[in-house]
């Protein structure tokens, strides 16, 4: 018996979320008494990088370098994962609840007849053959404990939910043939628009977000500067995306994306319930708003009551000084 994870990479660079799933899977293997953690890598990733998954407790990596995997087709990746799960007799499969995990995990659940808990936030409680896994529900307004009762279990882990601790193990890398061919590919990729110069919002540890209080898109320069000094991703409230001041993918909240960064700085956002739903599980929340009565202050750890146009430049300056002292 083993725990299987799926390696997420962009052009060969393994994503941080994979290290999260690796560390998580290592603990799951201990809790469930599984003999090993195996990772499946599809497409081209260097052997050195794959071996480094051993830092997080991965014992073996199965690597299928068939070029069909360099384009993402959920059906093809699911087939390969299912083949690997059979090959290593996996009792648990762990993926990240990111865009590829959301496409693969449900398919794999059907294919392996394995119960799936998606957006898990904690380790499972193992009780004989039943796993109870906590996940985020009601768009961050609550948690629910799901019991998985099937023999094989699939967990997709919310990004930023499980800490990465690296030791110095090395994983054995073996080549693997998952039996997938080009005939299985049903999706043709025409164009990839990479936002890779910015940090993808769901994975960002630090997020600077702004709302209608910024008055117009021309004022986002100071938000971007603050984010860049911090090394943070940028986000926004829904009305700001609706009127195209900011791109859709920055919209956080109940009808946008749900995030749980270590730090969420909300500037000129009132803190409507639908907005809070997407961000309230952030570890630390800072609110900057000129209205002392803004509901967001009730959900914040730190607050500054003041005009963003005055506060932000000062805050950015203070951060620059801090960074230069702590460089």
């Amino acid at each position: 018996m083993s725990v299987l994870i799926y390696v997420n990479h962009i052009n060969g660079n393994i994503k941080k979320s994979t290290f999260e799933t690796a560390c998580y899977a290592h603990r799951v293997a201990q809790l469930a008494g599984a003999a090993e953690v195996v990772a499946l890598s599809l497409g081209t990733v260097s052997e050195t990088d794959l071996a480094a998954l051993g830092n997080c407790g991965v014992n073996r990596v199965l690597s299928d370098t068939n070029p069909v995997f360099n384009r993402f087709d959920s059906g093809v990746h699911t087939k390969a994962l299912a083949a690997a799960a059979k090959a290593v007799n996996a009792s648990v499969v762990v993926l990240s609840h990111n865009s590829s995990g959301k496409a693969i995990a449900p398919r794999l659940s059907v294919r392996l007849q394995a119960g799936l808990v998606s957006a898990a936030t904690e380790l499972p409680q193992v009780n004989g053959n039943v796993f109870t896994v906590r996940k985020s529900v009601f768009s961050g307004k609550a948690f629910a404990d799901y019991s998985i009762i099937t023999p094989v279990k699939i967990i997709s882990l919310n990004p930023n939910s499980y800490p990465v601790t690296r030791g110095n193990g090395t994983a054995a890398v073996e080549s693997f043939n998952s039996g997938v061919s080009t005939a299985d590919v049903k999706i043709k990729v025409l164009e990839t628009k990479s936002l890779s110069d910015t940090i993808p919002l769901p994975e960002a540890e630090l997020v600077v977000s702004a709302g209608r209080g910024m008055k117009g898109p021309e004022n986002w320069g100071m938000i971007e500067e603050l984010a860049s000094v911090l090394g943070a991703a940028t986000a926004c409230s829904r009305p700001v995306a609706d009127v195209h001041w900011r791109p859709h993918h920055e919209h956080v909240g109940q009808t946008g994306i749900t995030i749980r960064p270590n730090l969420y700085i909300a500037i000129g956002i009132s803190g409507a319930i639908q907005h809070l739903a997407g961000v309230s599980n952030s570890k630390v929340i800072v609110v900057i708003n000129k209205d002392a009565e803004a509901p967001f202050f009730k959900a914040a750890d730190y607050g500054i009551i003041g005009d963003a146009f005055e506060v932000i430049p000062k805050l950015t300056q203070a951060l620059k000084e801090f960074k230069s002292q702590n460089a």
């Binding site: 959301k102 449900p106 659940s109 059907v110 985020s136 529900v137």
Partner: peptide, 14 residues
């Protein structure tokens, strides 16, 4: 927006 699964579509497809 209640159970936040993002599961049904992929399951139906499979």
């Amino acid at each position: 927006i209640d159970y936040n699964g993002s599961n049904i579509g992929g399951m139906v497809a499979e």
